[in-house]
């Protein structure tokens, strides 16, 4: 059995219930956890991103693939060498106060985890103080999500809190959500804006690579 092909297909097609079994079989036949991730899982998510860019996949398909990938990664985690696939960059992400929408934010969280970042998905309707506490726990990237024009100003409130607390320079702010624009992100003092989950991953990958080159 070509397990690389099988696992790749399982991620792309969102075969969430089967993938843990496939991973177990692949390991039994002598494949390493690392090879499964490098040769099947990561290329599969790259394929999913391509399908999304080409408007063949939309949010439900990408979410299903991402959560399928997550099931696979959870099964492999105990066997992966610590730090081998992880990026030493902690991200705390949440939807701001007054907003319960989380589908886009959850997708960003899953895809960032898949890309190797350490992600704390803090939930929805979050008061600004909770983001500050996340930074005090070690988060270096604060991801803010909002789907309502009425709750968008809350993003600015979070950033202001960090400024008055003297912690703004310690973190990087990444913002997104349907009504959010690059212009709005600039106005509130956010460091980065991402239009979708794939862009969020790209932004943080660039940030991580840039930090690695300039420690």
């Amino acid at each position: 059995m070509d397990w690389i092909k099988r696992l790749h297909e399982a991620v792309v097609k969102g075969q969430k219930r089967e993938i843990a079994g496939f991973a177990a079989e692949a390991l039994k036949e002598g494949m390493s956890a690392s090879a499964i991730v490098d040769e099947a899982v990561i290329p599969a998510m790259n394929k999913v991103s391509e399908l999304w860019r080409n408007e063949e996949y939309f949010v439900p398909e990408v979410m299903r693939s991402a959560s399928t990938m997550q099931v696979c990664m959870d099964a492999l985690k105990p066997l992966l060498v610590t730090g081998e696939h992880g990026k030493d960059l902690k991200v705390a992400i949440g939807t701001v106060k007054g907003d319960l929408h989380d589908i886009g934010k959850n997708l960003v969280a899953i895809m960032l985890e898949g890309a190797g970042f350490q992600v704390e998905n803090m939930g929805v309707d979050l008061p600004p103080e909770q983001f500050l506490e996340a930074a005090q726990r070690g988060a270096k990237v604060i991801g803010l999500s909002s789907l309502l024009t009425t709750s968008m100003p809350g993003m600015g409130t979070v950033i202001e809190l960090f400024e008055t607390s003297g912690l703004k320079e310690n973190v990087t702010f990444l913002v997104g959500g349907a009504p959010v624009t690059a212009n709005f992100a600039r106005e509130i003092g956010a460091d980065h804006y991402a239009e979708n989950a794939a862009e969020a991953v790209a932004v943080l990958n660039n940030l991580f690579d840039s930090d690695a080159q300039n420690p």
Partner: peptide, 17 residues
Amino acid sequence: MPDAQEAFRKLMGKAPS
């Protein structure tokens, strides 16, 4: 209406669901 959600949130103390 979307903007009603914010008003209800303030009145109820939490976002309506």
